[in-house]
């Protein structure tokens, strides 16, 4: 394992210290809980609080999306492991201004449980909390079990829309409704070329044979739907779009936003090569790309591979995407 770290058991703590020092103009950590990152603009105006949280190892997710007009507070977990109920609860308390709190997170067993317990704690403080649970990964379950699907890079669109809506002065119910629409309109698919290693484990706990790729791989290396021979960017793009398209959400003539995220060690060059192919296919289908985002938006440590996320747009979602933000991960 080739790593620039100190103690493998303290990588999250050590990262957070560096993160806070380098981005003190945008965020700060909670006085009593270093696992809670709070936007410096959190109480600039009265609005619905937006929080999220998840395991570490996905940087710049989740903490990179904390900042003005996006997420107000982020709960930080161990690597690939849900934050504690207390951290979610501390986030809720840090952002509530009497208008309620929207907790926008991904569909994983641990996060579901810890958020549930945090909401119960917040009920005792009479803080209203509602949730949107991202389930954009088409490969993680069939369409008739859509509630079982995982949240992946589509969460970035979810946070962007939720943060924007809240800043427009929407009520908690309105924020939830629009954010739920955003995630309902979003589909993602991943492809993995090499595994990743949790520093404390020291070795990868799954393998991808050289010359092959795992289609539909999850953000923690969850196995995909098939293992294929590694082919060209053109083929990969065509397969990825096809799987998303087969979920029968998108139609010819749609307007969409596209996000390609590297999983950690995929060069930007390859992400742009793939995007060019995706754009060509969408053009053939008469689908217009309103906005495209390419880069390492949601990673899995040093995994090689990428995710493709497409969101179907309407006027409201476009307006939300257009609102400027001041975060580390999203410009």
């Amino acid at each position: 394992m080739q790593r620039i770290i100190n103690n493998p058991n303290l990588v999250v703590e050590d990262m957070l210290k560096g993160y806070e020092k380098s981005h003190s103009d945008i965020i700060h950590s909670d006085e009593n809980n270093p696992r809670v990152i709070i936007s410096n603009s959190v109480k600039e105006k009265k609005k619905v609080g937006i929080i999220t949280g998840g395991g570490s190892g996905h940087e710049p997710a989740f903490l990179g999306y904390c900042g003005r007009n996006m997420v107000d507070a982020v709960a930080v977990g161990e690597i690939f492991s849900s934050p504690t109920a207390k951290s979610f609860y501390d986030c809720i308390r840090a952002v509530d201004q009497g208008m309620g709190v929207a907790c926008l997170y991904g569909n994983y067993a641990g996060d579901n449980m810890n958020v549930k317990m945090a909401i119960e704690l917040a009920e005792d403080d009479e803080i209203e909390v509602k949730t949107v649970v991202a389930n954009d990964d088409v490969a993680s379950a069939p369409k008739n079990e859509i509630d079982k699907r995982r949240g992946v890079a589509g969460e970035i669109f979810m946070w962007k829309v939720g943060g924007a809506k809240s800043n427009m002065g929407a009520t908690l119910d309105e924020v939830i409704k629009t954010t739920q629409k955003a995630i309902n309109n979003t589909r993602s698919i991943g492809v993995g070329l090499s595994p990743c290693t949790i520093p404390a484990n020291g070795k990868p706990n799954f393998m991808i044979e050289p010359g092959t790729m795992e289609f539909g791989i999850g953000h923690h290396g969850e196995p995909g739907i098939s293992v294929k021979k590694l082919s060209t960017a053109k083929d990969i793009a065509s397969n990825m779009v096809e799987i998303i398209y087969n979920d029968s959400l998108f139609e010819n003539g749609d307007e969409v936003s596209v996000l390609i995220s590297g999983l950690g060690s995929t060069p930007l060059m390859e992400q742009y090569i793939l995007f060019d192919e995706v754009a060509k296919i969408l053009e053939e289908k008469n689908i217009t790309i309103y906005k495209a985002y390419i880069g390492n938006y949601f990673t899995s440590l040093e995994m090689n591979g990428l995710t493709l996320t497409i969101m179907k747009l309407d006027e409201e979602l476009k307006e939300c995407l257009d609102m400027p933000v001041d975060t580390v991960g999203f410009k």
Partner: peptide
């Protein structure tokens, strides 16, 4: 376990 551990095992 609930307050300081997180993951799935903390709450369970």
């Amino acid at each position: 376990l609930v307050m300081d551990i997180g993951g799935s095992m903390g709450p369970i």
